[in-house]
Write a protein that binds this DNA or RNA. Structure first.
Lengths: 221, 221
DNA sequence: GCTATGTGGAGTAGGTACCTCCCCTTACTC
DNA sequence: GAGTAAGGGGAGGTACCTACTCCACATAGC
């Protein structure tokens, strides 16, 4: 809790150049963590920001602090999506919309994916945001089930698995076709209907043989 | 190609103790790669076999060689499943059965999962086994579609994604509930039907709140 | 112009992985 | 049962990576 102690940071403000660099670091972290995940090093982030490592460590005592500072905000966004969805009339559509929107966020931010599904990173602040989401998602699910749209045996914990699955497709194919996850999610959602009709139209074409080969060559477990 | 040059290994046979240890190494590798994936070190495998590292390196010039020797055989098994499935009458059921059986193999062998979905490990031998499977799976899919069981927009490359997804669930939850993937696969398959009826009965209960918490604590991206 | 504040990046410490080397042990041969 | 070629063990070499520190030098702001 060295810095970032909530609103109205106390003591003397940063020098102008320092404040600018602080923002550069956060922007760089957002990009780099988003692309390479939380395994990215602070060295990477510093260089990507055009700064030295020392500068980053002066501002954020450790990687943990930077992660905590960055992702609390992003996770808030996901929570807000759920709140918004709960206001909609059509409970099934609300569930579907929320799931697509959350997946959309995950698909463009590997760090967000990792921090949402693992407890290995992020502490108090992040955990609090996560805790907030559980009842929201549970409610979203129960409403969709009560309305007869969502299969009744779908449990809140299945939501984590769903995002895990979509995330794995993103990771597997992002170098070849970064939107392919849409295809998989559409199929998954077809399997979640309580009263399924015809399969939905898939929003994205499949990979061809060369592309799948390339995905297998890029991907590392 | 130092050893393992197909049937009837030439030159002088190994000394009795050496042959015994060679088998110990392979058995150990199967267990360790299965549990910890291909990132396991030859040191791990040696110790798990109760041997020194030197012994392993004497027998297998590199990790690559060991992997190649081990997994060619296991991949053959998956191919055989497909051949068997193509003989069944009910094309949709054959597709479903094959998918379950393949997932079953994947679920108990992390190394197999990794080698099937990544080209980073294994060369000639392994690649050959993979190539064999493509037409088999394609045929399995086309038959199931022609019979009106499988949705017509399902592509062969989607099979890799399906196993990717199931594998991610295995990895995420194996420490907490190693059979949970069955639940996810059942939902996935419900989404693949051309003429879906009611959702199928799920073969496994969901995780409760504590279990999902624990999964998130164990799992590392 | 002076000084507190900020910067850069080489360097440290500590870890991990693959693989080699060489002394000692053991199986097989005569 | 002695001699010898083959095998076994595991410390340690090499190479690499990551988190983090330190301090000579630069700059903002008064």
């Amino acid at each position: 809790m060295a810095r970032d102690a909530g609103p109205a940071a106390p003591a003397r403000p940063l020098r102008r150049d320092a404040e600018l660099n602080r923002r550069r670091i956060l922007a760089s972290a957002r990009e780099v963590f988003g692309q390479r995940g939380l395994e990215a090093t602070l060295d990477d982030i510093a260089h990507h920001a055009g700064l030295g490592v020392g500068t980053v460590y002066r501002r954020f005592p450790s990687k943990e602090h930077l992660v905590e500072a960055m992702f609390a905000e992003r996770m808030e966004e996901v929570g807000d999506l759920a709140v918004e969805a709960l206001k909609a009339d059509d409970a099934w559509q609300a569930f579907v919309d929320f799931t697509w929107q959350a997946a959309e966020l995950h698909s463009t931010d590997r760090g967000l994916r990792e921090i949402m599904l693992s407890n290995k990173f992020g502490h108090d602040h992040v955990a609090e945001k996560k805790a907030r989401m559980v009842p929201l998602i549970t409610q979203l699910i129960e409403r969709a089930q009560a309305a007869g749209g969502l299969r009744p045996d779908f449990a809140p914990s299945d939501m984590a698995l769903l995002h895990m699955m979509v995330g794995s497709v993103v990771e597997f194919t992002c170098a070849v076709d970064p939107d392919l996850w849409r295809r998989s999610l559409a199929m998954l959602l077809d399997g979640l209907r309580a009263e399924p009709g015809k399969p939905s139209e898939l929003p994205h074409p499949p990979l061809d043989e060369d592309e799948i080969e390339e995905a297998m060559s890029c991907w590392r477990p």
